[in-house]
C-alpha cells in the first residue's frame, strides 16, 4: 500500500526531498516502524532520521506519537519539533 511521506525543515534537507511515495513492506504498521524502514533507504535518510527523540509525526495531517498506526494512511509527515510564532 503506497504512502506519501512528507519531510520538513532539517529532516527534509537531510533526506534530500520534501516528498516521496513509498511502499513499505507488510508489517510496517506504526510511525516508528515506518521511520525504521525509511532510515534504510539511503545514507541521507539514515542520518536525518537517526535521532528519534527529535522527530515528530503526523498521519493524514493529524499530529500523533511514534506508536500511532499508519494502517490505511495516505500521508505521513515527519519533521522536527515546531518553532513557529
Amino acid at each position: 500500500m503506497a504512502i506519501d511521506v512528507l519531510y520538513f525543515a532539517w529532516v527534509r534537507e537531510g533526506v534530500g526531498t520534501g516528498q516521496e511515495r513509498v511502499d513499505p513492506p507488510a508489517g510496517t504498521d506504526t510511525v516508528a516502524a515506518l521511520i525504521d524502514w525509511l532510515a534504510t533507504r539511503s545514507p541521507g535518510h539514515a542520518q536525518a532520521l537517526a535521532d528519534r527523540a527529535r522527530l515528530r509525526a503526523a498521519v493524514d495531517q493529524v499530529f500523533v506519537g511514534a506508536d500511532a498506526s499508519i494502517l490505511g494512511a495516505r500521508e505521513v509527515a515527519i519533521f522536527p519539533p515546531v518553532t513557529g510564532g
Binding site: F8, A9, A58, A77, F79, V82, T83, G84, G85
Partner: peptide, 14 residues
C-alpha cells in the same frame, strides 16, 4: 492563542 500556536502549529524557523 499565541502560546499554543508556538507548540501546536507546524511551522519551522531557519
Amino acid at each position: 492563542l499565541i502560546d499554543r500556536l508556538k507548540t501546536d502549529a507546524p511551522f519551522w524557523k531557519r
